[in-house]
């Protein structure tokens, strides 16, 4: 497909990008907007490293074409906070040392944030079943779960 000028709303700001409509949102975020938080893991919607939110729901950005986004609002890990001003969930991930290599973490945070926005005090079962699609190759799942519980506890 030929590139075309398309508007996309990311982290509250409208951006005009010059990209073909079948381009995966992940490529637009990283290559056109320089938002490198979301990662390319499998490219097949199987691992979750590319997870971002669309209208508050966690989605795999590697299998979400730009055409599908339309006027809906995209939120990435950069939209939660920065190194200087972390969001409570980002703070909890840092405090629990949830990252080993860190490749999956932006996706983990965005999926967890989608849960906490909908349900501020999820049960352990709810956390586990919600996080089920996202994989961590290093095996820090237990710390990731602790970080989510910590953020949920802090919100109470």
């Amino acid at each position: 497909m030929t590139p075309a000028l398309t508007m996309v709303n990311v982290n509250g700001t409208d951006h005009r990008v010059d990209a073909a409509l079948d381009t995966p949102l992940l490529y637009v975020l990283r290559d056109d907007l320089g938002l490198n938080g979301a990662k390319y893991g499998c490219g097949l919607g199987q691992c979750g490293a590319c997870t971002v939110q669309i209208d508050g729901k966690a989605v795999f950005s590697c299998v979400t074409p730009l055409a599908a986004v339309g006027s809906r609002k995209v939120r990435t890990v950069e939209g939660l906070g920065s190194v200087e001003a972390m969001s409570p969930l980002q703070r909890a991930f840092a405090d629990e040392q949830a990252a080993q290599c860190g490749y999956c973490i932006a996706g983990m945070i965005m999926r967890a944030q989608a849960l906490l926005d909908e349900n501020p005090s999820p049960s352990d079962t709810e956390i586990r079943s919600h996080m089920q699609p996202n994989l961590c190759r290093c095996g820090t799942h237990m710390r990731i779960l602790r970080a989510i519980r910590r953020a949920a506890g802090a919100a109470k």
């Binding site: 497909m1 979400t64 730009l66």
Partner: peptide, 21 residues
């Protein structure tokens, strides 16, 4: 045509010709 664009970005990575699957 709209379906073709969506298929290319959402489905072809697995279901298209030459996909790893």
């Amino acid at each position: 045509p709209a379906g073709a664009t969506l298929f290319a970005g959402a489905c072809a990575g697995c279901h298209g010709p030459g996909a790893p699957m």
